[in-house]
Amino acid sequence: MDTVTVNGVEYRHVDGEDKGTILLYGLSTCGWCKETRMYLELNEVAYNYIYVDLTSGDARDAAMEELEKYNPDMSFPTLIINEDTVILGYEPEKMAELLDLPEE
């Protein structure tokens, strides 16, 4: 599995069409996180994700610190596009609009 490191946080990379740098903060157990991943994969978008619940110690601290910068509520899923646009929760319409994808 390919990994990508951005600002000290290691993400798993999923191949697809390049729509900018997409970082997904999720939990391996969370329903809306899975929906978000399924949506991105259905639309064949390249993205990077981290399942924070599967991290520990310094790696988790680094990930949560980074997440807090974009989302003070530190909720999951959080999707960050090009380090400036943030989508909280599973929001297919917002993803379609911001990533220029066809509506469902």
Binding site: L27, S28, T29, G31, C33, D53, F76
Partner: peptide, 16 residues
């Protein structure tokens, strides 16, 4: 899964 992992049924959508 969380119950097995942590010993208590943590919300699956939040970080325990």
């Amino acid at each position: 899964v969380n119950e097995e992992r942590y010993g208590y049924p943590a919300c699956p959508c939040r970080l325990a």
